[in-house]
Amino acid sequence: MTLRNRILVLVAAVAALAVVAVASVLHASARAERRNETQPGGPKITAGRITLTAPGTMVFRNMAWGPHRDELTTVTAATPSGPRTASGLKCLRFYASSGTGVCLQAVHGTVTDTYRALILDAHLKETARYDVPGIPSRARVSPTGHFAAWTAFVGGDSYAGTNFSTRAAIVNTRTGKLIPTLESFRILKDGHAYRSADVNFWGVTFAADDRTFYATLATKGSTYLVRGDLRTRTVTTLHTNVECPSLSPDGTRIAYKKRVKGLPKDAPWHLYVLDLRTMRETSLAEPRSVDDQAVWRDDHTIVYAMPGDYGADLYSVPADGSGRARRISGAAVSPAFLR
């Protein structure tokens, strides 16, 4: 057999093995669909009713293959890896507070997909919907449930590089008044009014006063934590190198991802917590790069998503820099802890 023929045989064998592997995965998924089950090895999931006013529960997007893939699902917060109840409502990103939810969805078209934000009541019934101008990436609801926010990529699809553009919107869930972009707000940077064509905002997080919010502002290759005021429509820079902030339940600290020198360009972040009174940073005990807007399980624990076998898994780490990171739930992303 010539060398050329040997190579052709080898290529054909590799291709055949790849086809078998793909067929096996598709068969397992199809069998799970027919049986109304998740793929073997996945979490136990049953259909049921979900409410956003049940304290002590975690609501999230289920990532396990099967009939409930991408649906909003709930578990008890005390046992996040336990059996799940699936709602039937599919979301790409989700958040909820005080009986109000925001669900960012894809609308699949014949040529291209479009996106929308649904405002949900406590029983997951849609109360309003808004067009989203690009791929959804972040979602938040204020502690009172009176405001919701979302971020979308309108150019690019990753925060790792610099060649992207985002659009952050805030809506009053009571009146329906929409602020389609935070770029309309007045910027105070280092105590002075600031304007630039390259300004981007993302990762809104709300305080409990229905007025104050925090977000990331990017301009001229740098990122800043900004404090926003919904009444005066201004944002003020507070701290540098802050992305995807998340305000603690007690309103005193911000969890965020920070770019660290020496890390790979496609995975440049480390998790930190910032004390808003002292501006002291605390590095958290998660050694891997985290690309997520973390959530606070309580005043002491941070929860975030990392890549997993089904797309994403949830991990937790202490907010004071102690301890270690641990996986709390597989095949899950975009959690909200109901209080």
Rank of each mutant, 00 (worst) to 15 (best):
residue 23 A to T: 08
residue 115 Y to Q: 05
residue 311 G to W: 05
residue 253 R to N: 03
residue 98 S to L: 05
residue 309 D to I: 01
residue 107 V to D: 15
residue 76 T to P: 00
residue 77 A to E: 13
residue 283 S to W: 02
residue 323 G to D: 08
residue 70 D to C: 00
residue 85 T to K: 08
residue 245 P to Q: 11
residue 109 G to M: 07
residue 274 L to C: 12
residue 10 L to C: 09
residue 135 I to C: 01
residue 278 T to M: 04
residue 77 A to R: 09
residue 151 T to K: 10
residue 265 K to I: 02
residue 74 T to V: 15
residue 317 V to E: 05
residue 274 L to D: 14
residue 315 Y to K: 10
residue 190 D to T: 11
residue 208 A to M: 04
residue 145 G to R: 08
residue 338 L to P: 02
residue 204 V to G: 04
residue 148 A to P: 11
residue 252 T to F: 00
residue 62 N to I: 00
residue 241 N to G: 10
residue 319 A to N: 08
residue 108 H to E: 15
residue 326 R to D: 07
residue 13 A to S: 12
residue 37 E to W: 00
residue 265 K to N: 07
residue 38 T to R: 00
residue 149 A to T: 07
residue 203 G to W: 01
residue 154 V to T: 15
residue 162 T to K: 11
residue 279 M to V: 02
residue 9 V to T: 08
residue 232 T to A: 08
residue 47 A to D: 13
residue 298 D to E: 10
residue 58 M to S: 02
residue 263 L to G: 04
residue 241 N to K: 07
residue 282 T to N: 10
residue 137 S to F: 07
residue 177 K to N: 08
residue 41 G to M: 00
residue 57 T to D: 09
residue 244 C to Q: 14
residue 166 T to Q: 11
residue 24 S to M: 07
residue 118 L to P: 03
residue 145 G to C: 09
residue 162 T to S: 13
residue 141 V to Y: 07
residue 26 L to E: 15
residue 10 L to S: 12
residue 268 P to Y: 03
residue 187 I to F: 11
residue 170 I to V: 14
residue 316 S to H: 06
residue 214 Y to E: 06
residue 308 G to D: 10
residue 226 V to L: 04
residue 151 T to R: 07
residue 281 E to V: 10
residue 26 L to S: 13
residue 144 T to K: 10
residue 214 Y to T: 06
residue 109 G to D: 09
residue 82 G to S: 02
residue 112 T to S: 12
residue 232 T to G: 01
residue 241 N to I: 09
residue 327 R to G: 05
residue 111 V to F: 08
residue 165 S to T: 12
residue 72 L to C: 08
residue 67 P to Y: 03
residue 57 T to I: 03
residue 150 W to L: 10
residue 171 V to Q: 05
residue 245 P to G: 09
residue 115 Y to E: 04
residue 324 R to M: 01
residue 91 C to L: 08
residue 217 L to M: 15
residue 118 L to V: 04
residue 99 G to N: 07
residue 108 H to C: 00
residue 244 C to D: 13
residue 320 D to N: 15
residue 206 F to I: 12
residue 330 G to L: 00
residue 81 S to G: 15
residue 297 R to Q: 15
residue 197 A to S: 13
residue 23 A to Y: 01
residue 154 V to E: 12
residue 62 N to F: 01
residue 321 G to H: 08
residue 248 S to K: 11
residue 73 T to K: 02
residue 90 K to A: 14
residue 193 A to D: 14
residue 183 E to Q: 14
residue 185 F to N: 03
residue 18 A to R: 02
residue 205 T to Y: 02
residue 208 A to H: 11
residue 175 T to V: 09
residue 147 F to L: 14
residue 94 F to Y: 14
residue 202 W to M: 08
residue 80 P to M: 04
residue 167 R to E: 15
residue 257 K to G: 10
residue 158 S to D: 14
residue 322 S to L: 03
residue 13 A to D: 01
residue 173 T to R: 09
residue 100 T to N: 13
residue 313 D to N: 14
residue 308 G to H: 07
residue 228 G to S: 08
residue 332 A to H: 01
residue 37 E to Y: 00
residue 96 A to Y: 08
residue 89 L to H: 05
residue 302 I to F: 06
residue 108 H to I: 14
residue 335 P to N: 06
